[in-house]
Design a protein around this nucleic acid. Structure first.
Lengths: 185, 185
DNA sequence: CTCTTAATCTTATCACTGTCAAGTTCAAAT
DNA sequence: ATTTGAACTTGACAGTGATAAGATTAAGAG
């Protein structure tokens, strides 16, 4: 029993999930629509019923993990009460996410597919920073600059954390915290 | 006269140059060894006499522009006398390079091809920072953290500057300077 | 100058890729 | 029960990285 039915039933979602798992294991370069189709037990043209083309698939896959990422950050925001620490904690979560999913960093930012001004994690970070700096009495013109500086640092550090061997890994959280605290905002 | 000679004479160099020009114009994704061969007026298999494979070509192309980039930074180091300003100026040059060559940012850092601990611009920056912080009386343990923080910021900001529409472009140097100065080292 | 050699390049071919047109199946609405 | 449209398969196409086998020629040895 359970001969494969002609209609998969949940193909789009499975393509995204298996695709991301594949990227996580072998990297983006290795991913092909045909292999992906095979992994899902489906013919090589089947994915094109759900995605316009490979680029579209990659784009939607990026959205998919960006949503997860954004949720992680949002969760972090709700957990941390201390408004003075929230920027640091958010930064830490940001960096840690890419430490835990190194291949996602390349996947997300390699191909210039992301429009920063529509990138939820950035918008979220920018919002929190705006609020925090505002409360700290930072003047309006300076806020944007500080925010960009901080975001650049956090995002740049994420790139570092995605490479093995740069950060000290025995107490990673402390390491990240130390680096982010090494400059005064 | 000037029938194409069987032997090109300078193919390897031309492949690198035309290849980089192509990347700059159309992006890495569009580049294929065959198109590249055609651009150089040579058969599709000819490049493989000079490069093991596409990956090898990309790697050597990266080295090629990394050299130029490193030279720019070195030049900057020699020009700026004021040791207090050197880190800022170096950061500015770093960011500006990728503003001027946006496609290079993706080209260099997309595919995880670069080993940071062997990446000359990083080593150069790390060296200058070490010296600067040392002179500023920063204690040894803190130096590394400050350096990583600063480098992350500079490198992350480079990513920003490679996207159009994020940085204000009417007086870019001042903009970059403002951001890098928005945090205290 | 001739011969040899090894680097450079061409031709032909392979397996693989993204993608599409045409046909097949089947769930659900009419 | 019939229709319809979405989800799939099959089979094809051009383009890709790569290799083997052979052609060309620059440069050195005799």
């Amino acid at each position: 029993m359970s001969e494969k039915p002609y209609h998969h039933g949940n193909l789009k979602m499975e393509l995204l999930e298996k695709g991301l798992a594949f990227v996580d294991e072998h990297g983006v370069e290795e991913l092909s629509m045909r292999k992906l189709a095979e992994v899902c037990g489906v013919s090589s043209a089947a994915p094109y019923a759900h995605f316009q083309n490979k680029e579209d698939f990659l784009l939607q896959a990026q959205r998919f993990i960006t949503e997860q990422f954004t949720e992680t950050l949002q969760e972090c925001m709700e957990t941390v009460k201390d408004k003075k620490k929230i920027l640091l904690e958010l930064g830490k979560r940001y960096v840690l996410f890419f430490y835990e999913n190194p291949s996602y960093y390349h996947f997300l930012f390699s191909h210039g597919r992301i429009e920063l001004t529509e990138y939820p994690p950035y918008l979220l970070f920018a919002g929190v920073a705006e609020e925090a700096f505002s409360e700290m009495g930072v003047k309006k013109k300076a806020r944007r600059k500080k925010m960009l500086a901080l975001w650049s640092m956090v995002h740049g550090l994420s790139g570092l954390s995605a490479m093995k061997g740069v950060l000290e890994e025995d107490d990673l959280e402390k390491e990240i915290e130390g680096i982010l605290n090494a400059v005064e905002i």
